[in-house]
Amino acid sequence: MTAEGGRPPLAETHGLTKSYGGHAALDAVDLQVAEGSVYGLVGPNGSGKTTLLSILAGLRRPTSGTMRLGVARGAMALLPDTPEFEPWLTAFEVVDLARALVNPSIPRERVTDVLVEAGLRDAIDRRAGGFSRGMLQRLGVASTLVGDPALMLMDEPCSALDPMGRREVLDLVASQRGRRTVIFSSHILSDVQEVCDTVGILQRGAMRFQGPLQDLLTGNRTPGMLVRVRDSAEEVARSLATEPWVTSAVAIAVGEVRVGVRSTDEAERELPGALARAGARLVSVRPEEASLEQVFLEMTR
């Protein structure tokens, strides 16, 4: 079996269910993560993202269903959303411990390298007990990278980072594409849209969508056009709303109208005439670029 893009799946689950009492935290989830991909796992709070990652990492057992991993447990690393370490260990000792436990043959010099890569150059010999949440997150990233895992499970890795730290982690995640497989959970959808090539949307424990990000953006959203006019946007919106191929027309800013349409093709043919009938002085027309956030909200509403 192959995952997206014909690549073999490195991690896959079939009918994976996890119940706590009568509540299904995961409900028959079929996950397919292609080798070398950066897979974005998105969903509202409580949708089952952390549970799914925990099961993949071997920290929890599924109630039913099957799971297949194409890597040994030692070649997989999990970065929890709020990583914590023994407060009396220095950053170097934390990462060195991770190195020694995962693969002692990795040279010790690698410890300093990954700490620098994670932005902790100045805190290498400081104890983790004095670290801010952002620094702990960076330390978590460093202790994940040091073992050179084939599969990285990252649970909300940017949640505690400042904008610069977030940028660095996103660049780091994006740079892993092709080198290793990353499953990246986040509720910051712009981050997922930026770094992931494949997306899975979880809602109340069920997988609502799984596939290439582009398919999601183009195939699951009501198409729309953004129209800029010199006249009153409200009047133009009212006029366009009467057209049969228009599903919605809303003035979203001064001189700007968002026109929801049945199809982009229909809009491209009909919109110039409709604008002319409305007497609008046209500035520009362009198809609306769908964002993951918009698609996500439409799917999970």
């Binding site: 990492a57 071997g58 920290l59 030692g74 997989m76 690393a77 999990l78 929890p80 709020t82 990583p83 914590e84 370490f85 023994e86 934390v94 991770a98 436990l101 995962v102 202790s143 073992g147």
Partner: peptide, 14 residues
């Protein structure tokens, strides 16, 4: 006792 510290070790020890 502290889940996130436990995760660090449990996902790394053989």
């Amino acid at each position: 006792a502290t889940a996130d510290i436990a995760i660090f070790l449990r996902t790394r020890v053989s």
